[in-house]
Design a protein around this nucleic acid. Structure first.
Length: 670
DNA sequence: AGTCGCAATATTTTT
DNA sequence: TATTGCGACT
């Protein structure tokens, strides 16, 4: 065979060279998941399978891209032409576009999450109240709708999970409230579906839903599409939701599934991911086999001991007891701080130490946090100490307001029926708010073509830049970069005004980046639909030069699949692992938080630093201190470090139960 | 009636 | 730190 196959251990080789029909590989963290997928791809290619008949799917763009990149790097000799790694969403998008006769969708506009929210806002109107006179939150409506689509649960169930899954309300009260308000939500959702239809919008969920439903219902179509592939390799299987399962079920017959995942790393429950179905894979999928990978190559045993301990505290049994191939190493540090600046300062000091004293690279250091917000102070310290960094996670550049502002006129050119784009674009200009914008849209949306729209706009008493912008870019359909430059030329003055107090200078630089990215696309229409699904700019927020060595600051979610010699996990304190919200949401959410922390801990290869507030053992409430993950931490698992400022507070450390009493109880003030 | 500016506020996580 | 809500002004 070749080197790649020889370097596998027995378990990995068994998986990579599997010759049965379907296989589910249950792989613990760091056990060579990606390596096994690559070896599988390589094995298939060597056995004569054409690259175009192998489909590689993953849940996130990052992991999909990474796998293909690594395959291409590792198999540089072989023909990997046509081998693609996609997200479920981009794959479905492609199927819909390439098979218009099957899926009957043409000339649609794909809308992203923000647009979807705008749609619902439009439908809900201002200050919509429910039967109990609470304001209906648009975000909640979106989440409920999406949860229904992705998991096939009933509206009531979705409402219960998103709205109410809250420990202090009695079940009866919750059920009553749901029954009372259900019609309101049902109505909004129906209106949304009608609205999307009218405007020819598809949202993310529609992409999966259309493909899944049509393939399920139509045997001919199913046969036709599934015969395009021989092998489907699915990474991060634990993040797959019921809708995606249904989608895959259409391929059981004609394709071989090769799925890889780790139940202990399932952290997308909020999107309907259902890791438990991984355990039942052999029951759900006919003709399937299971295979485990248990030997960890990434970390030292001390790091795994702590990670294993964390899972063992759970009431769920994950049956994970990772063993380090590399053997013994350094004990993880548990660093205590008094305030978050001290934490950020210490992290960046340790990074400098790694680079200066141990001659490591910046990229050997990774800082992990539950939320993007939690990285802020560390980012500030990186800037101060001139440490180059890249941030992963959170909303990327394409989500940011100024980019969407500039993209809005381009969207209008691509499809002048795009009401949401009109709304955004028109409201940029002085004197035009929601009401006037709607009025103007009423004038233009039913015109026969774009020229007539622009002509109509010129006749209205509104800022002339509106028609000017559209006119300037209307013949640049096939020169996207130029179109952006032109739109910017007309709009710059206004944008500068809007963002003058909000780092206009750095936003201005983003526009140049946008132009650069646009060079790769052929038409505005293509650019618009492509950037919704795959905003290529998501990780370009850098504090250094282009390909310069850099530290990675990442949310835990975005760090899945990554690893680094030194990992710093921020703020593993009482109020944040698990968060108050998760505690309120009950057992399932708490377990998801636990898995989140598990993912973070298992990223480290050599050195792991876990940070926490020195006051962590004191909690606001009993339930909080009881569920805190590091509560009964075995002291042998970590080495305790107390930062100088926190030392002052160390005496107040109290590990026992906190009892609330009324200190005025003994007095009579009546 | 509609827009704009200011003050208050609440922060997961991703396609 | 970005968004939202409210009140004042056109």
């Amino acid at each position: 065979m070749n080197d790649l196959q020889d370097n596998l251990n027995a378990e990995q080789r068994l998986a990579a060279q599997f010759t049965g029909k379907h296989l589910m590989v249950l792989a613990g963290a760091g056990t060579g998941k990606t390596r096994t997928i690559i070896a599988r791809a390589s094995f298939l290619l060597s056995s004569g399978v054409s690259p175009s008949r192998i489909l590689i799917l993953s849940f996130t763009r990052k992991s999909a891209r990474e796998i293909v990149e690594r395959i291409k790097a590792d198999l540089s000799g072989k023909s990997t032409e046509g081998l693609k790694g996609q997200t479920f969403h981009s794959w479905c998008m492609e199927l819909i576009q390439q098979n218009r006769n099957i899926f009957s969708q043409s000339d649609f506009t794909l809308i992203d999450e923000d647009d979807r929210e705008s749609c619902f806002k439009l439908i809900c109107g201002k200050n919509l109240k429910d039967k109990e006179n609470h304001t209906v939150k648009v975000k909640n409506v979106v989440d409920i709708y999406s949860y229904c689509i992705n998991t096939s649960v009933s509206l009531s169930t979705a409402m219960r999970i998103i709205l109410f899954d809250n420990a202090d309300m009695s079940d009866k009260v919750v059920t009553e409230s749901i029954e009372k308000n259900k019609p309101i939500y049902a109505d909004l959702i129906r209106k949304y579906i009608v609205y999307k239809n009218k405007r020819r919008y598809l949202d993310y969920d529609d992409l999966l839903l259309i493909v899944a439903r049509i393939l399920k219902a139509n045997a001919g179509a199913r046969d036709f599409v599934s015969k395009k592939y021989d092998h489907i390799l699915v990474d991060e299987m634990q993040d797959t939701n019921p809708l995606q399962y249904q989608l895959l079920s259409s391929f059981y017959e004609n394709c071989h599934l090769f799925c890889v995942g780790d139940d202990a790393q399932s952290i997308y429950g909020f999107r309907g991911a259902d890791f438990k179905s991984m355990h039942h894979f052999t029951e759900i999928v006919p003709d399937s086999t299971q295979q485990k990978l248990t030997l960890n190559y990434r970390s030292t045993q001390e790091i795994l001991d702590l990670s294993n301990w964390l899972l063992k505290q759970s009431s769920l049994s994950y049956e994970k007891d990772l063993v380090a191939f590399r053997g013994k190493g350094l004990i993880p540090l548990l660093v205590h701080w008094e305030n978050e600046w001290e934490e950020a300062n210490d992290v960046t000091d340790r990074i400098i130490e790694s680079v200066m004293k141990r001659n490591e690279l910046y990229i050997d250091n990774m800082v992990l946090s539950r939320s993007v917000w939690g990285l802020k102070k560390t980012e500030a310290c990186c800037i101060k100490k001139k440490i180059p960094y890249t941030i992963f996670g959170g909303s990327g550049l394409m989500q940011s307001r100024h980019i969407r502002d500039l993209a809005a006129p381009l969207r209008i050119i691509a499809n002048f029926h795009d009401e949401l784009a009109w709304m955004r674009f028109l409201m940029l200009w002085p004197g035009i708010g929601e009401v006037t914008a709607s009025k103007i849209i009423g004038y233009v949306i039913d015109k026969a073509n774009l020229e007539e729209c622009i002509y109509t706009l010129m006749g209205l008493n509104i800022p002339k830049e509106i028609s000017e912008t559209l006119l300037a870019i209307s013949d640049l359909q096939y020169n996207v970069s130029e179109a952006i430059a032109e739109a910017l030329r007309v709009m710059e003055k206004r944008l500068a005004e809007i963002y003058k107090d909000n780092n206009w200078e750095s936003r201005k630089n983003d526009f140049e980046l946008l132009q650069e990215v646009a060079l790769d696309t052929v038409s505005i229409a293509e650019f618009v639909s492509e950037y919704v699904l795959d905003p290529k700019l998501e990780t370009t927020r850098k504090g250094g030069g282009k390909d310069e060595d850099h530290v990675i600051l990442s949310t835990i979610h975005s760090a899945k699949g990554l690893e680094a010699k030194n990992c710093y996990v921020l703020n593993v304190s009482t109020f944040s692992f698990p968060s108050k919200k998760a505690i309120l949401n009950g057992e399932e959410s708490i377990e998801e938080e636990r898995r989140c922390l598990y993912v973070a801990l298992t990223r480290a290869k050599d050195r792991l630093c876990v940070y926490r507030d020195i006051h962590s053992v004191h909690a606001d409430s009993k339930i909080q201190s009881e569920s805190y993950f590091l509560n009964s931490l075995d002291e042998k698992l970590v080495q305790k470090v107390v930062l100088p400022h926190a030392q002052y507070f160390e005496d107040t450390f109290y590990g026992g139960e906190k009892i609330d009493i009324d200190i005025y109880d003994d007095f009579d003030f009546s």
